[in-house]
Amino acid sequence: MMKLYRRQFTALAAATMLTLPALGASAQEVTLKLGHLANEENSWHKASLKFAEDVASLTDGRVEVQVFPNESLGKEIDLINGMQLGTADMTITGESLQNWAPMAALLAVPYAYSSLEQMDEVASGEIGDQIEAEIIEKAQIRPIAYFARGPRNLTSNTEIMTPDDLDGLKLRVPNVPLFVKTWEALGAAPTPMAFSEVFTSLQNGTIDAQENPLALIESANFNEVQQFVNRTEHVRSWIYLTISEMSWNKLSEEDQQAVLEAAQNAQDYERELFLADEERLEQVLKDKGMTFVDSDAEAFATAAQDAVLANVSEDIKPVVEELFAAQE
């Protein structure tokens, strides 16, 4: 099991004494609203419900967590802003936090993590500590657990084995400059586009290909307009379960400990769901007629690294160089 957040327990007393309420804090009743963008079938939502259940149990009902899926409390950035203002309590968020804490960009750098295991080592190690500390300091939001995301793969109507096969491929990418520059360097013709427009654009030939995790490939029915899933696995990333520092500081030390324990339980539970879901999704897409191609991930990674280093911010460039070196 990952011990990621248990290491925070012993440091809590010193960090929280200044903000603890007066005597009787353990009897205080607090309601925390947790809003996120995923739907009810998503492993993040199921893990959030597990978190809420454990928080209630571990605090003897002193802390209640209410979970709101489907952006029903607001979009990700709106919730982050609300958490900083004290009008929202919790959300699930990731590299969007780089708007405040530059190191959060490390959550989704192309080819920075060659495997789920290596990503775990970074997220739960010294670099992860630095990312979390900067988010707490600069965004006033506290990561208390993390969830893995499925690697992004390239779908197309031709097999893509090596970067040479990308020549001129009209590829939809999210509007992330690092992604655009990296695909350009690999030889494709990347086209930033809203996700809602992708299916129609594939259908009418405006674009040839797109890239996303299996969960989105399946839920968007891209199998109807794309034949191949090319295992480029070009971005592995994680995302944090977070709490506003304002909301965190309303909790007694005892309840903070309980919240961290519940968060660790949720992290472990989500990982089980995630691994099972990745296996299920591949079979579902195959059953719907898609062919999986074992692309030369090493060739893609090698070709992409220079472009990544040329386009990441100076704040994180040394860390990205270190992550690339660790794979050699």
Rank of each mutant, 00 (worst) to 15 (best):
L241D: 03
L241M: 09
E211Y: 03
M193W: 01
Q203N: 15
Q227G: 10
T200Q: 15
R236N: 03
M246A: 10
L186H: 04
A188M: 03
T206G: 14
A209E: 10
A220T: 09
H234N: 14
S244E: 10
I243G: 06
A185Q: 08
Y240S: 11
E233Y: 09
E211R: 02
A209H: 04
R231A: 15
N212P: 07
A188I: 07
N230K: 01
S196L: 11
I239M: 05
F222L: 08
T191I: 06
P190I: 01
I239S: 05
E197K: 09
M193A: 09
L214F: 12
E218K: 05
A189I: 03
F228G: 00
F199R: 06
E218H: 13
E184Y: 04
T242E: 12
M193H: 01
E224S: 06
I239G: 00
I217D: 04
A185Y: 00
A194T: 08
A188Q: 01
N230A: 08
F199G: 07
E233K: 07
V225A: 01
I207W: 09
M193V: 08
L216W: 06
F195P: 03
T242R: 07
T206C: 09
Q210D: 15
M193Y: 02
G205V: 07
E233T: 03
E184D: 06
Q203C: 12
T191Q: 05
P190K: 03
L241Q: 03
N204R: 15
T200V: 14
P213D: 14
E211Q: 10
I217G: 02
N212E: 15
W238D: 08
F195T: 12
F228W: 04
L214N: 05
N204F: 11
S196M: 13
Q226V: 09
N204I: 00
G187M: 00
T200E: 15
Q203R: 15
M246I: 12
S237C: 00
A215N: 13
T232C: 06
Q227W: 03
F199M: 13
Q210E: 13
P213Y: 12
E233V: 11
A189R: 07
N204Q: 12
P213E: 14
V198N: 04
Q203Y: 14
